Simulated scan of single mutants.
Amino acid sequence: MPEDLLLLLFQPSSGTIAGENTLFYVLAGAVLADLALGDHLTTADRGRVKTVEGRAPSDDILRSAWDYLSERPRGVQTVLAAIGPPLRKPVLERLVERGDIDRGDRKVLGLFRTTTLKEGGNGRRAGLLGEVRQVLVEGAEPRPRVAALAALLSASGTLPLFHREIPWKSSVITRAKELERGNWGAGAAGEAVTRTVTATVVNSAIMAAAVLPRS
């Protein structure tokens, strides 16, 4: 999920990533949501989260967060601040390696070289955006993974930037806020823990990011 979220936040028209100033919070939120979706993580008392014993993930990025949480239950905001800052680089590397984003370089003022990013040719970003659009605009009942992804995208505060594909209107805002709160529809009835963890993560990410200026 961190890769999918970063890919959605990538803006092909400018070659930049939206919400850079608060990016580490939402990427960390995606890691925790992914752990919850895989039954690696659950809730504890006092709004904390904890690992599920014996359910360590195989993915390196997820495993690092799982190991940190396995020491003891922790508050979500504490976890976001601890695991988020180093995530951008390895997540972006994964996107480049699998061709979702192409990386190159160019000269600035004919002297200095700078790294450039552009959308890869595999269509993955368009597919993800289409799934999110179906949920937010067309009212489709989401799969848990798409619901969590849409909730985190909303929490990032960047949804207005997607107005061409996802019109920024009251019905979209209302639906996004429902997903943030864990209201995913009848089809997610068996995903109670995942919805609870994701809602906790999203709300904590919003509160944590609120104190930072948005890019």
Score class of each variant (00 low, 15 high):
48 R>H: 07
54 G>Q: 14
69 L>R: 04
76 V>A: 00
75 G>C: 09
94 R>H: 03
90 P>K: 03
57 P>N: 05
75 G>T: 11
68 Y>Q: 13
94 R>N: 08
81 A>S: 13
92 L>K: 04
78 T>G: 12
49 V>Y: 02
86 P>C: 03
84 G>Y: 05
88 R>A: 08
70 S>G: 04
75 G>P: 03
51 T>L: 14
52 V>A: 05
70 S>P: 02
73 P>K: 07
53 E>W: 03
94 R>S: 11
58 S>M: 04
54 G>V: 14
95 L>Y: 11
78 T>N: 08
51 T>S: 15
72 R>M: 08
94 R>Y: 11
95 L>I: 00
52 V>H: 09
74 R>N: 11
73 P>F: 02
64 S>D: 14
48 R>A: 09
82 A>C: 12
58 S>Y: 09
78 T>C: 07
89 K>M: 05
58 S>D: 13
86 P>M: 02
62 L>I: 02
85 P>Y: 14
54 G>W: 10
84 G>I: 02
93 E>W: 13
69 L>F: 07
82 A>D: 06
85 P>G: 05
70 S>F: 10
83 I>E: 01
56 A>W: 06
84 G>S: 05
69 L>Y: 02
67 D>M: 07
93 E>V: 12
54 G>P: 14
57 P>K: 01
55 R>D: 15
53 E>L: 13
68 Y>S: 12
51 T>I: 12
73 P>S: 00
80 L>Y: 00
59 D>M: 09
54 G>T: 10
68 Y>A: 07
72 R>K: 08
87 L>I: 15
89 K>I: 07
61 I>E: 14
73 P>G: 10
65 A>C: 01
84 G>M: 00
85 P>I: 11
66 W>M: 03
66 W>V: 00
93 E>I: 06
61 I>Q: 01
70 S>I: 04
91 V>M: 12
92 L>A: 14
66 W>T: 08
82 A>Q: 09
50 K>C: 07
88 R>G: 01
70 S>R: 14
78 T>M: 15
50 K>E: 10
61 I>T: 08
75 G>W: 11
68 Y>T: 11
74 R>A: 07
56 A>V: 03
49 V>N: 06
77 Q>G: 13
91 V>E: 04
84 G>T: 00
67 D>V: 12
80 L>H: 00
72 R>L: 13
49 V>R: 07
86 P>Y: 14
75 G>M: 15
59 D>E: 14
66 W>D: 01
